[in-house]
Write a protein that binds this DNA or RNA. Structure first.
Length: 498
RNA sequence: GCCGGUAUCGUCUAGGGGUCAGGACACGUGGUUCUCAGCCACGGAACCGGGGUUCGAAUCCCCGUACCGGUACCA
């Protein structure tokens, strides 16, 4: 089994295309097939090298690899369509010679007018066939005169073209509704429908897994295979990925490209796991599955026929799962850019990095994405008693006398106590405040939270408090934003309280 | 317009001539926790409509509707 993923480098890798790549990859891995990466860069206006590089990088980031491609090599290259121009020309010549194709001199304006007319007459707007029966002499003359020409395929009339689609069964379309497609543009570059056939044919592709937007093109391609005497591959047309409003997923729905998800702090294993779930079901109920397991279970038979809505909430759920089981060193490395951007970190000293790595899970356990880490961690770095007291929720909490007593007792206790650098120190301090104030449980811990963090919510105190005091001890050269210790916080709070 | 594709909870889906139509996300309620998150328990929530075939249709067939795609010298 030979499969291919064929992106056109005209922008960033869209998640819908990433899903197509993924399904190809899963099938290849499941069946021991070969996956080819081919760059469809025949649109010279829009294709860029940068896009190609980005797409390859995104695919690798997702954990997908390929056996043959522009970078990987292979026996049936080149793997970039722009480097296969001779092949297309030669094959177009074959079709020209056999009468399957002909040259067309119609101008874009003429064609447009034809389309308008056909539409007005209620006919399918296909090529009118003006140049279909131009004599060889006439063609020669116009060519010699330097008139621009395209090569068109001669589509046989009144034929039902049927092709096999593994996910939908067989599909039949009449040639009466398809006009003669352009094979070679006037600049000598192949048009899509021609290039795919030549490439898939010459590259020995046996199964074409692609988006369902290609279904209407397929008959033309099948006809081309026939003209060359080749056996068409088996097709598998995947349904599309839609936005919440059921329109195809686009920028106005938010992030649509793989890099954007990457930049927002989604883990690649999460994106890939989620994407596999749109339009395919692993069966058996469990959905949180690593790439290898997805590949083990994958089959085209389980692919659904209908389009799927991209659900950011479910993606978030999947991402939270992978965030929870991720290695903390990795989380540290991945979070650093966001912390830098938020001004909370710079180049870290070794000790600071160790500290960050240790405390990070308390933040990553409570976020959907890594870009939310700075916000979750802000209360470790930033403390302002006046501001805290201005907060509605904090005010309400301090209405009770007990809460104020806890605040004062805590400040007094910490004034002479050692820093709360571990859970035991913190627990001991809390215990002492409990004894002097008589407050316990919620009435004890919640005021402590407020005094020490200025907020009435956040990570659990057992983790948070030691994080603050160990962070405060790090020193000015740590590369971290300065951290005020608990003692100073409590003192400032009581002063602000008046 | 024409051609093609698709149709199960809000969303992703399982199932498929007789089921209490199952699961997951999200949502609601309760429990746990100093709080948020989490976790646990419980709950509401669906077979697009109409005709047929059949003892019986969500499932098969037809029609309709809706949505998506195509109708290019884009891919």
């Amino acid at each position: 089994m030979r499969l291919r993923f064929a992106p056109s480098p005209t922008g960033q890798l869209h998640v819908g295309n990433a899903r197509t790549a993924l399904f190809n990859w899963l099938l290849a891995r499941n069946r021991g097939g070969t996956l080819i990466l081919r760059i469809e860069d025949t649109d010279r206006e829009r294709s860029t090298h940068e896009s190609e590089r980005g797409i390859l990088e995104d695919l690798r980031w997702l954990g997908l690899d390929w056996d043959e491609g522009p970078d990987a090599g292979g026996d049936v290259g080149p793997y970039r369509q722009s480097e296969r121009l001779d092949l297309y020309r030669a094959h177009a010549d074959r079709l020209l010679a056999s009468g399957h194709a002909y040259r067309c001199f119609c101008s874009t304006e003429q064609l447009e007018a034809d389309r308008q007319a056909a539409r007005a007459a209620g006919q399918p707007p296909r090529y009118a066939g003006r140049c279909r029966s131009l004599g060889p002499e006439a063609v020669r003359l116009r060519l010699d005169a330097g008139e621009p020409a395209v090569v068109r395929f001669r589509v046989p009339a009144h034929r039902d073209v049927t092709f096999a689609d593994v996910v939908r069964g067989s599909i039949t379309i009449s040639t009466d509704v398809i006009g003669d497609p352009v094979l070679l543009r006037s600049d000598g570059h192949p048009a899509y429908n021609f290039a795919v056939v030549i490439d898939d044919g010459l590259m020995g592709v046996t199964t074409v897994v692609r988006g369902e937007d290609h279904i209407p093109n397929t008959p033309r391609q099948v006809l081309l295979y026939e003209a060359f005497g080749w056996t068409p591959p088996v097709f598998a047309h995947l349904s599309l990925v839609l936005g919440p409003d059921h329109a195809p997923l686009s920028k106005r729905h938010g992030a649509t490209s793989v890099v954007e998800f990457r930049n927002r702090g989604y883990l690649p294993e999460a994106l890939v796991n989620y994407l596999a779930l749109v339009g395919w079901s692993p069966g058996g109920g469990d959905e949180l599955l690593p790439l290898e397991e997805l590949a083990r279970r994958f089959s085209l038979e389980g692919v659904s026929h209908s389009a799927g809505v991209f659900d950011v909430e479910k993606l978030a759920w999947v991402n939270r799962h992978y965030l929870k089981i991720a290695d903390r060193e990795r989380l540290c490395a991945l979070s650093l850019p966001y912390l830098r951007e938020a001004g909370l970190a710079n180049t870290l000293s070794e000790a600071a990095r160790a500290w960050l790595t240790a405390i990070l899970p308390m933040a990553t356990a409570a976020v959907d994405r890594l870009d939310q880490v700075p916000a979750r961690l802000a209360l470790v770095f930033t403390y302002d008693a006046i501001e805290a007291l201005a907060r509605e929720g904090v005010r309400a909490e301090l209405l009770a006398d007990g809460a104020r007593n806890v605040a004062r007792a805590l400040a007094e206790d910490l004034a002479s106590a050692p820093p709360l650098t571990d859970r035991e120190q913190f627990r001991a301090a809390a215990q002492r405040v409990r004894e002097t104030t008589g407050q316990k449980g919620k009435a004890l811990f919640h005021p402590i939270r407020i005094v020490l963090t200025g907020h009435n919510e956040g990570p659990e105190l057992d983790l948070l408090v030691p994080a603050i005091d160990t962070g405060a001890a790090l020193g000015a050269d740590s590369g971290l934003a300065p951290i005020t210790g608990c003692r100073a916080r409590a003192q400032a709070f009581v002063e602000a309280l008046g």
